[in-house]
Structure formats: structure tokens, C-alpha cells
Design a binder for these strands. Structure first.
Lengths: 328, 328
DNA sequence: AACCGGGTGGCAATCGGTTGCCATTAATTG
DNA sequence: CAATTAATGGCAACCGATTGCCACCCGGTT
């Protein structure tokens, strides 16, 4: 079922069919309706590749995540997917396996097959990212690079809330459990933490970096205990959940002996044991907003962008993994 | 950077470049190497759309899931993604939002843009599915339809293991907490449950259907208690986790007063409270196998399939949500 | 009557590859 | 040495749309 079949059937040229379908005002009403009726009847679906080839638009957006198993991305994927569907676009999901080279490689590979890309937690150096953004519409998530539009979840602000929370519970020795060094968010959180601590005349300890998986949680837990801190703020929930598990294994009471605060509020944070105090991030919304920004950008390619960066607020959700500092 | 640029640069025809790159044995070694070198140097990436248009192959596979938020699918997506990457193919992720019409519609829409599709938990009637499978390479997951190849996770067998487990702990009144009626797996599990129970001269109760979300767990928990059963086997872990939560809320001791067994062993099943006894399903493997079958099928399109269905074994993972039946 | 301009629709080039067919050349064989 | 065959590379048609350009028709002006 091609545009030619419809053309033959309705006795017009293929070009007219094309116009009737994609630029309805360019063709006479009766002709148009006849064509549209035929198209509907034959259940015509335009060939995406052919259209892409001539028009350059693929109606597809790639979402690059560093690791598809990380529950953080679940929400992001979901949000992006929703918004894309609403706009009639397709979602190409790409897992960069946490490697900058692979990310770069795959990006090059799909460059021509998508209208734009959303980079969630890109591991690419700022330089490379700028170059790519110049030749392909890009929106980053949780990564801020000059001249690249982005949606960032304001976890630094959340980290401050977390510090206030812990300090108010008389914690004085608080450690940051760091994630991957290549993560922009990781550094942002650490900076926020130091700033917040400094306000109270305190100094944050730091352990890590650790991988973001539950298994790294064991190592992280032990390292955290070694700092002598009475509370730990972790890079993300996955790590926090791993830590909780290890602490339980070692018989360390949470929050009796040590408090743990996570980040992101992923699936599971509310039903692990004890339920995790964490920074609730509007992840799904981030996915939706990222897509909106990208599509918006695509529609007004020439124009200067209205907003380059959207900052989404977070808030601390207090559950049972944080409590008063132990009395020594 | 097109094939023509390379042709011009190396002084051969475009067709030769094309061959040098995709059918290396059709061109002389020295010519080929010259072309390949030029391609590498210019960082040439073939245009997917153009290639698809003429060859019909898109090197893209669609994965349809009924709900991208369901953690069950994340393993599947991950597995599929891995295997596809290895084969140099791309993954188009499609969320059918649990609607058969939408599933059918989207399927038609992408039909021409992909080499094949993997249907995870299809809601389509058997009839429709057959039709689609006839015009497009299809592999289903957890769904068995004649003449459509599939990978199914043998949870029925697992359910039997679960029943044995519970019966050995002196449970006599066991209920099945059902999922969506449109789910093939749901019915398969229920049948297995009845059979297994019958072997011991027992009859299984059944409650439901319930939606597969944690919130449906509350309703399900109450319904489960009403049956007077001392143990419940649930359609999936999401539901089970919701039930555990509700039971905790109501002060019902698990497994003291009632045992709960889930299905799938999704992310979170091991750290909820109490950790969930569940049927561990090789989800990621299912994703990989589904892709392998599909790609294999694509390579030997004309030939008759070797295996139409792959059955993956499951096993019961006993954690703390199941225990001896309460003495009455 | 000659002219003008907007509304329609066709022609043909184009996007970037793929592939069947054929011509040329080189190698093998009787 | 002639003849058959295999290897190699070019030509051109095609895949299915999109789009710039032009021709035509028609009503309205002057």
C-alpha cells in the first residue's frame, strides 16, 4: 500500500496524494476528501523510511541511558515514551553501558535516523557534547553544558534539605557516599552537601566513588561505617538500598546507629526495610519535559531558544531510615 | 557523508562502494580496502532510512510492552537491548498502555519500519495475532499461539513448586490472586495452580482479577483475607508487594498468619519486607532469547522453523514471606 | 478583448542506498 | 591458441515518499 496505489485508484498524481495527506490546504477540498477516504479505506500507512529520506524528518527520538537496569531510568523512559506517543513520535532506546566511547559511537550511528536525542546522564566530556549538540538537536537530563538545552532535577537543593533534616536531628558527622566520578549530578550533589554543611560550621566526609548497583552497596556501607559518621547521604537510592541491606546484615541498626538518606525515590525506596528517607525527584516529569523541549526545539529550529534549561524541584521525603543521631 | 562522496573520492562507482561495504567478497581486495579505508577515514555511517528503503531491512526491532512502568519489563528490555546491540540492531520501544486496540494500531504503524517485533504480554486476540504474524516476523513472550514462535517462562511449573512448598508447610487453604483476565500467563498460572492443588486433593480459591500495580494490592489483600486462606499465590510480584504492604498496615503477620508467594522475582522482591518468596523467572534471558529467535528467523525467512517455542524454567526462591501454616 | 493572479495539480528531480544485469578483463583449460 | 569461465566493476532502475517549478483553468479587471 503506497502513495502510488492510492494515486492510481483515485486517478491523480502521487504528488497530489502526498499533498492531500501532509499539506491538506494545498489541494482542493473534493480531491482531498476523495484521496483521504481512499487512504483510510486502504488502511494506508506512510512509509517512515521513504518519508525520512526525502524530508529529513524521522519522527523518532533516541533516548540514551547509561544503564537500562537502573530503576531511575524506568520513570524517565516512561515519561519520555508518554510524551512522544502523544506527539506521534517513536522512541529509540539506547543503552550506552556506562561507556563514553560507546555513547559517542552510538550517537554517531543513529545521528541520521532520529530527529533528536535525549541524553540521560551523559558520560561525554563537555567538549564532545557541545560538538554533537551543534549538529543534532540535543536535550540533556541532569547535565548542564553551555549552549545545550537541558532539564535538570534540582537535587542539590534537595541535598541541602537533607542536610538540614539530619542536622536538626543532631547529626554532626555526615558523610557523602559518592557515585561515579563521571557523573555530573554526583559532583553537583557533593558540592551542595559541602555548602550546606558549611553553613552549620560542619565539614562533610566523603567516601567513594562507588558503582551504582546494589552490590556496591556492601562496600559502600563498610566504608561509610569507617568514617564514623552518624549519617550518610548517598548518590542514589540504588546505592542506599544496597547499604541498608549490608547494614542489616552486619546488625547495624538504622536509624538507631546510623541514618541513611538516598536520592531519587526510585521504585522500591518506599518498601525496602526500613523505608528509605530520600529526595523525591520528579523523574517521570523530567522525561516528559525533556521530550517537550526537544520537540519544541525541532519546531522552531531557526529561532533562538526561549528557555535553555528547566530546573525541576525536589523535596525530601522522610521515611524510616533517618532518625535522631545516636547519643555518644 | 554519503556513499557517493566515497565513490568520488576513491574513483569508483557508488555501487562498488556499496558492495565493498556490505558484500565484501563481491569486490577485489585492493579496491575493497581502499574503499574501506576511505569510509573509515571519513567516518562514514550508512543512512539507515536509505538502506531500509531499498533493501527492506531496517535493522530495527520493536519491543511492545503493555506498560513500561512494570518492573517486569525492565529485565526484558535490558535483555533484548543487549542482544540487539550485539547484533548491531536498534530497539524501538513501544508502550501499548494495556490496550489491545492501541497495540494493534501501533503494530500497523511500525510494520514497515522494523524487521520484526517482540510482543511481550500481548493483549491481542489469538486470531489477530495470527494475522499479524503472517505478515511480519513476530516472537511473543509469555503467550502461546499456534504458528507463532514464542518464548514462554514456565511459571506454571513454578506455580506447582510453590504449591508443593506451601502444602509441605501444612497449608491447605490456598488462594490464587489473579491478574488481568486478558493475560495469557494469568490463566496458565491459575490452571497450574488448580492442577497442583488437585494432586493433594485440595481446591484452590481464586480472587480477582486485580490490576497489576501496587495499589491494587490493597484491595487484593483484603479479598485474600476474606477467603480465609492461609496462603496466597499472586499473579505477579508487583501485586504481592502491594499485598504485603497492606497486610503490614492491617497488622497481619506475614508469614505468621498468612503466607504470600509472588511471581517473577522482580527488582525489589528481595528487599521488601518481609523479603518475598517468589518464582524466580529468567526475565533477562527471556529478552535475549526472544531477540535471538527473531533474528534467527529473519536470517532464514524461507525455511521452516526449527523450534517454534522455547520454554524457560523457573524455580521457587524461598524468602521470608512464606512459612508454616498457622495452627488453628 | 487582452491581462492578471490565485487556486490546483502534474512532472520530474531528489533523498542515499541496493541490486539485477551486462561488459570488460583475466585466468583456466583442452 | 582459441574458447570457456570466473572475477570485477559500472549502469541504471528502483524503493516510497517530498517538493520546487511550471502549466493550466477560471473568474475578475481594465
Amino acid at each position: 500500500m503506497t502513495i502510488n496505489d492510492i494515486a492510481a485508484l483515485t486517478g491523480v498524481a502521487a504528488s497530489t496524494v502526498s499533498r492531500a495527506l501532509s499539506r491538506p490546504d494545498r489541494v482542493n477540498r473534493v480531491t482531498r476528501e476523495r484521496i483521504q477516504a481512499a487512504a483510510r479505506e486502504l488502511n494506508y500507512v506512510p512509509n517512515t523510511q521513504a518519508r525520512a529520506l526525502s524530508s529529513g524528518r524521522t519522527e523518532t527520538v533516541a533516548l540514551l541511558v547509561s544503564d537500562a537496569t537502573n530503576p531511575f531510568y524506568f520513570g524517565l523512559i516512561r515519561g519520555a515514551q508518554q510524551q512522544l506517543r502523544a506527539a506521534g513520535h517513536a522512541l529509540l532506546l539506547i543503552d550506552t553501558e556506562d561507556s563514553a566511547e560507546l555513547e559517542n559511537h552510538l550517537l554517531h550511528k543513529v545521528r541520521r535516523s532520529v530527529d533528536g536525542v535525549i541524553l540521560a546522564a551523559s558520560r561525554l566530556p563537555e567538549q564532545t557534547l557541545s560538538v554533537i549538540a551543534a549538529e543534532l538537536p540535543v536535550v540533556t537530563v541532569n547535565r548542564n553544558v553551555p549552549r545545550v538545552r537541558s532539564v535538570v532535577i534540582d537535587s542539590p537543593d534537595g541535598v541541602m534539605q537533607a542536610v538540614e533534616h539530619l542536622v536538626s536531628l543532631d547529626h554532626r558527622a555526615i558523610a557523602y557516599v559518592a557515585g561515579p566520578p563521571s557523573s555530573w549530578a554526583n559532583e553537583a550533589r557533593w558540592r551542595a552537601m559541602r555548602t550546606a554543611m558549611a553553613r552549620h560550621g560542619l565539614t562533610a566526609a566523603r567516601v567513594g566513588p562507588f558503582g551504582v548497583s546494589r552490590s556496591s552497596g556492601s562496600v559502600a556501607a563498610d566504608a561509610l561505617l569507617n568514617t564514623g559518621a552518624t549519617a550518610g547521604v548517598t548518590f542514589n537510592d540504588l546505592l542506599a538500598i544496597g547499604i541498608l541491606r549490608r547494614l542489616a546484615e552486619r546488625g547495624v541498626d538504622v536509624p538507631g546507629e546510623i541514618s541513611v538518606v538516598g536520592c531519587d525515590d526510585i521504585f522500591g525506596a518506599d518498601f525496602c526495610s526500613p523505608p528509605l528517607t530520600t529526595l523525591t525527584a520528579p523523574i517521570e516529569q523530567a522525561g516528559r519535559v525533556a521530550v517537550s523541549m526537544l520537540l519544541d526545539h525541532l519546531e522552531h529550529l531557526g529561532e533562538t531558544a526561549s528557555r535553555q534549561t528547566v530546573l525541576l524541584p525536589t523535596h525530601l521525603t522522610i521515611r524510616q531510615s533517618s532518625g535522631p543521631a545516636p547519643r555518644r
